[in-house]
Nucleic acid binder design. Structure first.
Lengths: 300, 300
DNA sequence: ATCCTTTATTAGTAATACTTATTAATGGGC
DNA sequence: GCCCATTAATAAGTATTACTAATAAAGGAT
């Protein structure tokens, strides 16, 4: 055994690539949808066939050997290429197929993405969309995610950003209960005396400095308060419970303003926002499915 | 099914590449060492998974569809790369492994190649050598053969040629029976009156013009006779049976000259030959096994 | 030292890949 | 034009393999 190790190992080789990249049998197994045991056996079999050790593994770490490193570098991206080509091939089908992965916040899914994509899902039953709700920084290139949706300001280079959805109006609100105890602010500067619910930026780790504007005058306020979130949903909840002033796109408060559960302040200072952008790597060649999704999202 | 057609099809994809390249399920099956039926089912399964037709096939021909053509172009050489890398990886093993394919004439195998390679075979049990005895022109690049052995004159460009074995002395011989009926030639020009056993060149389709030399004077004779071969073995046999004069490297006549079964003539006109050359593509990166074989053959 | 996480192992099972045998279709030879 | 040889498709059965579930062993972290 060993003198015809040429082929037939292709699936095992692919397994190896995934394990080596993730550095973990367990994570690789999750990614591939098999058990960790299957991978363990596959790698063992591969190493036996090649008669060379590819991964040095303890119960705590998995790292490629010299040979494994070399093999990974040499063949890893070939498998990527093959996978990409398979995706691309679907554009020659009658109906395009494939999975499009999008990372975004949770609110935007219901408010914008799902409505816009409903027709795509119906029209192309072989197109799948995976949403990855993630408030932290997401490297969509490294994680092989097709696109991300974030507020307009933060756009990496090598990324194409297209606006989706309409302009957003920011709104500063708090509950009637809160304003019963605290005076309403008249200018952004008054906010320094208030209990403001902070939001931590996903991309860079900093806190969001609330941005105001009136008659061309721009004012950024570093507010303070007892609560910090990185999810807008919980900010709304906290505001409803009277825990402070929240500052978010007005949409996110839903019916609460109209119902009187939340009261807008500083309305004349609240700027219109360019809104959400979809961004995706300019270098990667888009799959047919992604092209369709992109077109649908571009529609205003 | 079909919305996760991403991977797991790798072996089938490789099968597809081979079938598409050979243009035949049967030949591809022989090459892969499986039955034609296995390939037929694998391709069917692949096409079902991708939901796209890759090969249009009648009972008489197999040719790729548009999608198949594209897929073949896109991923075919990736599989080659992967295979090459697997071969190359063996140089990191304790013992190199792999198969080296050599095309050559039959005589050289016993006279030169096997003696020189005997130690390699013993020392590296995981190295295999496949000899392809072939008198016709062989495109070692297209047929993925590692190297060829031919007489020195014919060297393609993009080929590296290294001399193996010693100089050869040509010899013109015939049987005693023949010379009992015909006068021995004294100069090459006399050969025109003789029944000379011709050899057809493998590379270019022409007949070999016998090359003589004496005191710096070179003489090429287009001889004539009743027999033409493209294998030296049969030329020797024919000469032994008194069917004419043969002109070959002296070695090829073995013991027959010493035994008196064949008689040398024109000895002073017979030149020393540069001998056999091993040639191999300069562009292809040599496998570890081939490096070892090459080293062994270079030794004088 | 203990617990938690991660890989290795074992045994059993489900899945599939392959073989053999046969059929259907096609093109070339006569 | 007909037949034969060749080739791909199909059917059914089997052997192989790939995978799962459960458990053990090992290494870090606290």
């Amino acid at each position: 055994m060993g003198w015809w190790m040429i082929k037939q190992n292709l699936n095992e080789l692919n397994y190896f690539v995934i394990v080596a990249r993730t550095g973990s049998f367990t994570r690789a197994a999750a990614q591939l949808g098999v058990t960790q045991s299957a991978l363990s056996q596959a790698i063992r079999s591969l190493e036996a066939n090649l008669d060379i050790r590819l991964l040095t593994r303890t119960t705590r770490s998995v790292s490629p050997t010299l040979a494994g490193e070399r093999l990974l570098n040499a063949i890893g991206h070939r498998f990527d290429d093959i996978e990409n080509e398979l995706e691309a091939l679907t554009e020659l089908r009658d109906k395009p197929a494939g999975t499009v992965k999008i990372t975004c916040g949770d609110f935007i899914i219901q408010s914008t993405l799902l409505p816009k994509l409903a027709n795509v899902l119906k029209q192309y039953p072989d197109i799948n969309i995976e949403f990855n709700v993630n408030y932290g920084y997401t490297d969509i290139v490294a994680q092989r995610i097709d696109a991300g949706v974030r507020l307009g300001e933060t756009i990496d280079k090598d990324m194409i950003a297209v606006p989706i959805g309409k302009e957003l109006n920011m709104a500063a609100v708090a509950s009637p209960e809160y304003f019963a105890k605290h005076q309403k602010p008249n200018t952004p500067k008054d906010l320094t005396a208030h209990n403001c619910i902070n939001i931590r930026f996903p991309t860079h780790g900093g806190l969001y400095a609330w941005e105001f504007e009136k008659e061309g005058e721009e004012l950024n306020v570093n507010v303070r308060g007892q609560l910090i979130f990185n999810t807008s949903h919980h900010i709304v909840e906290a505001a409803l419970q009277g825990l402070g002033i929240a500052f978010l796109p007005e949409e996110e408060f839903g019916e609460h303003i109209k119902n009187g559960n939340l009261i807008k302040v500083l309305a004349d200072w609240c700027p219109a926002f360019p809104g959400y952008y979809l961004y995706y790597p300019s270098r990667r060649q888009p799959s047919p499915a992604f092209k369709i999704v992109l077109e649908a999202l571009k529609q205003q």
